[in-house]
Amino acid sequence: MSFHPDTPYEAAAVDRPAVIDAARHIAPIVRRTPVLTATVPTPNGPIEVAFKLEHVQHGGSFKVRGSLNALGHARESGTLTDAGVLIASGGNAAIGAAWAARYWDTPCTVVVPESAPPAKLERLQRLGATVHRVGSSYAEAAAHAATLAGELGALQLHAYDLPHIVAGAGTIALELSEQLYTPLDYLVAVGGGGLVAGIAAGAHDTDLIRGVEPVGAAALHRALAAGTPIDIELDSIAADSLGATRIGNLAWAAASTGRIDSLVVDDTSIVEARRWLWDELRIVVEHGTAAALAPVLTGAVTATAGRTLCVVLCGANTAVSDLG
Score class of each variant (00 low, 15 high):
Leu121Asn: 08
Ala27Glu: 13
Leu297Met: 11
Ala254Glu: 11
Val112Trp: 04
Val190Met: 08
Glu175Cys: 14
Leu309Val: 12
Ala238Thr: 00
Ala141Phe: 13
Leu148Arg: 03
Leu281Ser: 12
Ala50Trp: 01
Ser2Gly: 01
Asp266Glu: 12
Arg75Ser: 14
Ala94Lys: 09
Leu148Phe: 05
Val285Gln: 14
Leu180Thr: 05
Leu242His: 09
Pro5Arg: 01
Gly45Val: 08
Ala253Asn: 02
Leu148Pro: 00
Ala70Gly: 03
Leu124Cys: 02
Val265Ile: 11
Pro43Thr: 10
Asp105Ile: 08
His58Thr: 13
Ala116Gly: 10
Ala141Leu: 13
Pro295Glu: 00
Ala189Met: 10
Thr268Tyr: 01
Thr302His: 04
Ser321Tyr: 02
Gly153His: 12
Gly288Thr: 03
Asp322Tyr: 09
Ala189Val: 08
Thr171Lys: 13
Val311Met: 07
Ala225Cys: 01
Thr7Trp: 02
Arg274Phe: 02
His221Trp: 07
Glu178Ile: 00
Glu140Trp: 01
Ala83Leu: 06
Thr257Val: 09
Ser262Gly: 04
Leu224Ala: 01
Gly227Tyr: 05
Gly227Trp: 08
Ala200Gln: 03
Ser67Cys: 15
Pro28Phe: 06
His221Asp: 15
Val196Ala: 02
Val296Phe: 07
Gly315Val: 07
Glu54Gly: 05
Gly72Ser: 15
Ala38His: 11
Leu148Ala: 02
Asp161Gly: 00
Gly198Leu: 00
Leu180Arg: 05
Ile232Lys: 10
Gly96Met: 02
Ala141Val: 11
Trp252Lys: 02
Ala219Phe: 06
Arg75Trp: 08
Asp15Ile: 11
Leu180Glu: 07
Val30Phe: 01
Lys63Asn: 14
Glu213Tyr: 12
Ile199Arg: 03
Asn249Met: 14
Ala146Phe: 01
Asp266Met: 10
Phe51Gln: 06
His4Tyr: 15
Ala22Asp: 05
Ala200Glu: 08
Gly315Ala: 08
Arg24Phe: 04
Ala50Phe: 03
Gly288Arg: 08
Arg32His: 10
Glu54Ile: 05
Leu242Thr: 10
Cys314Glu: 11
Ser115Gln: 06
Phe51Tyr: 10
Leu293Ser: 09
His221Pro: 00
Thr245Cys: 06
Ala116Asp: 07
Lys120Met: 14
Ala251Val: 02
Ala197Gln: 06
Ala292Leu: 09
Gln156Thr: 09
Val14Met: 01
Ala225Glu: 15
Ala305Cys: 07
Ile209Val: 13
Gly128Gln: 08
Gly216Asp: 04
Arg75Ile: 15
Ala23Cys: 04
Ala129Phe: 14
Ala189His: 10
Thr33Cys: 08
Asp82Thr: 09
Gly198Arg: 06
Trp252Ser: 01
Leu121Lys: 06
